[in-house]
Design a protein around this nucleic acid. Structure first.
Lengths: 174, 174
DNA sequence: CCCATCTGTAACAATGTGTGTTACTCATTA
DNA sequence: TAATGAGTAACACACATTGTTACAGATGGG
């Protein structure tokens, strides 16, 4: 195995939201996101929950609601998403506490913990080099599809007034 | 959670073997290693299996057998151990294949895979900065115990003729 | 005011992984 | 020959992840 797919699912949803915004649709419902993921809407809500709490996305209730990017996609790094969906370390320590009478068992925990934190920092550093916007550009360029929009049933048709990126639906003047 | 503890268990066992060697004991049985890990000998054999196949450790059968370091502890990096016990990537892709009709679902897999490989390289780079020998020195210095040896029942008493490190039990003349 | 829509969340089942445990086989040494 | 110890299969158990269903609460349109 290789860990879990929380980061993958969250990044996928964010890219999908960014593409929708580019085509003039500021919001997508959990069902529409789930259709792209081939999953179910509850999993989408579970995955996007911590992102909503952090302000990366916003969720609207009722008709016309759904998920929207809370910030420009160019300002969201994978490292930020990773920190939200995967709070723990990369590696686990012992399944149970090792023998405290053994010199190795006594001291290896804190030392390994420190090393694992360095590893986590290295992971975050590598992930911080990629933004949602950049990732979306890359995947559209390297793996293009005949139609860049739609293809999933239940999606609103493209709208000409598409905004390339721009800040979070430009909060109506308060 | 945070992945599994395979790396932790393998590194622990290697440090324990390195300390035993320093005190004149070239080999430890699975039971003795399991005592330090507060686990069971079968788990030790499972964890050390890939390390044995790669030559990092050797396993001897019968009385006087057990596990020995196959190379000096100063030449074994955590990156090498990690590559043996955790062959997969750090993060998982989608639980099932996403919609291939969606532009994001179609292209995000290969792009994310490439990024995850970069992350794995960063992890390996960070882990390669630590060797078993160095880790053992660090934990003995920062978290010392009154007695550096024994404390676990069933261990042979210390022997004065201790070899600090040296190559794999200095294979007896061909 | 009523109703359809959509998120939020709990509850449960299904699955996969990791780990613990037991039992047995086979090789090695005394 | 007997005791030791690795190798391995089989099974149970715990836990995390994911899928699924059901229901509560909020929102917006008519």
């Amino acid at each position: 195995m290789a860990g879990n797919s929380r980061l993958t699912v969250a990044v996928h949803a964010l890219c999908w939201l960014a593409l929708a915004r580019r085509h003039g649709h500021p919001a997508l419902t959990s069902d529409q996101i789930a259709a792209s993921l081939a999953g179910n809407p509850v999993a989408v809500r579970r995955a996007l929950g911590p992102l909503r709490d952090a302000g990366l996305v916003t969720a609207g209730l009722g008709p016309g609601g759904g998920w929207s990017l809370g910030r420009p996609a160019a300002g969201i790094t994978l490292a930020e998403v990773y920190a939200l969906v995967e709070p723990g370390a990369v590696f686990a320590l012992h399944p149970h506490r090792p023998s405290q009478e053994c010199p190795v068992g006594y001291g290896i925990g804190p030392v390994l913990e420190e090393i694992y934190e360095e590893v986590a920092r290295a992971v975050a550093g590598e992930l911080s080099r990629h933004t949602i916007d950049h990732l979306l550009d890359t995947l559209l360029r390297t793996h293009p599809l005949p139609t860049e929009w739609a293809g999933i049933p239940g999606l609103p048709s493209d709208r000409p007034g598409a905004v390339p990126d721009g800040p979070a639906a430009t909060a109506p003047g308060s």
